[in-house]
Amino acid sequence: MTHHPLNCTDTTSPKIAIIGGGLTGLFTATLLERAFSQGNDKTPVPNITIFEKSRSVGRLATRYRTDSQTGKNWQWAFGAQFFTAKTASFRQFIAPWLETGLLQPWCAQVVNLTPANDSIESSDIQSKEQWNTTQARYISTPKMTSWGRKLADELQHTTMKFKTRVAPLAQYDSSIAEKVDKKTELFDDAGASLGHFDWVVCTAPNGQVVDLMTDSGFSQKNKITEPQMQACYTLMLGWNDIATLPKALSKDVQPEWDVAYLSDSILDRIFIEHQKPAHDDLLPSITIHANNHWSEQHVDDDIETVQSQLLQAAQQALSWNEESAPSQIDSHRWRYAATVVNNKSDKDASGILFDERHQWIVSGDWCGQGNIESCYQMAQQTVEAIYNIHKVV
């Protein structure tokens, strides 16, 4: 990091609120703790609070069901399926969890799949590539949520507040804040005070950030809506055993595959969960992501209607009959799933939005390239902005 000697006489412990307990929030808290603990002995250790509206941390979502007869699980990574690590700093960051096996490379066999239609009787499957360790795709084991929970467990100066919705920042009174020598008082959606904070870091999707920052005087407000975010529907399918899988998913099909990219379909990709590393004990489980453009067009449709359309498209792609139909069916709507970067390069990505007067930072993967490595890069930028002001030279 490049450090600038700003406010070097401030030796009080900074109180930092992080809105959102997804990976950006967890990375930010982790890097903040490391930066301050590795600094000068006089550098104050931050007092960090993460406010998360749901019951758990990390957006690497996992859903599972248990078979009452066998006790085995169907399991679906219905959020991000994997992530890459293209920069040296992020590779260094994830190295400890690779050593323990919590993170593992996924060397999947990838195919292109064209579903059956009027002109072809069965789906056409053609080899595309095999993911390898040169530019690895990584997964968290045994669940995609496992890494987020481990990150949270390892935090030493951070308090987690679950089921807490932070109200729009316009509610706080800046004149009172200045009198008590604090920057911002946060409130929950019932109007109860959550405390005063020197820094507020918001890591929510930009659609939610707009609401949080309305009428707040946030200096970078106009930039919040520059990145466009699209929805994604996820379809989760399960079978009772390998023998009941449709032929397109069986080991007999050639080429064998783990991931399929679809064409001529409202579906985008199919992932075979039980073939991932450290997933051998799962019952047959398939996760399907719909096309983002189609998902965005149907984002407000009834979820049951959408599920029916996705199921029809999946049957067209995987060609099951009555005997090989899935026994488990579920779906999920992600309203803010994919960031449209508009062909920006990494250098052009906007980065965090920093209001220095209020000491508010808006962050998140959507501030970068919309992936998990962007969560880390935005966390780096946030920590640099805060540490530069509070460090003691």
Rank of each mutant, 00 (worst) to 15 (best):
T234A: 15
F197E: 03
K182C: 08
G217S: 01
Y233M: 05
E178F: 02
D181C: 03
A231N: 03
S219T: 15
S219D: 09
F218M: 08
K223C: 00
K182G: 10
V200F: 08
T184M: 10
F218E: 06
D173N: 10
F187K: 03
D181P: 02
K183N: 15
K223F: 10
C232V: 15
E226W: 02
M229C: 11
K183A: 10
Q171R: 13
Y233P: 06
S175T: 05
D215P: 06
E226D: 11
T234K: 07
E185R: 15
M213Q: 08
G207M: 09
N222I: 12
V180Y: 02
C232Q: 12
S174Q: 07
V200L: 14
N206A: 01
T214K: 13
G191K: 06
V209N: 02
Q220I: 03
K223G: 00
E178R: 05
K221P: 04
A177E: 09
A204C: 12
A190D: 13
Q208W: 09
I224F: 00
F187P: 07
Q228I: 15
T234S: 15
T184W: 02
H196V: 07
A177F: 00
D188V: 01
G191P: 08
A177R: 14
A190V: 10
F197K: 08
L212T: 12
P205N: 13
Y233F: 14
E226H: 11
C232G: 01
A204T: 15
V180T: 12
L212K: 07
V210W: 11
P205R: 04
D181T: 10
C232W: 05
S174D: 05
T234D: 11
F187T: 05
L186G: 00
V210S: 12
L194K: 09
V209R: 07
F187H: 13
D173Q: 13
A190E: 11
S174W: 06
F218N: 01
A177Q: 07
V201W: 05
M229I: 12
A231R: 02
S219G: 09
D173M: 10
L186M: 06
T225W: 05
A204Q: 14
D211R: 10
E226R: 12
T234I: 14
G207W: 14
T234M: 15
Y233N: 03
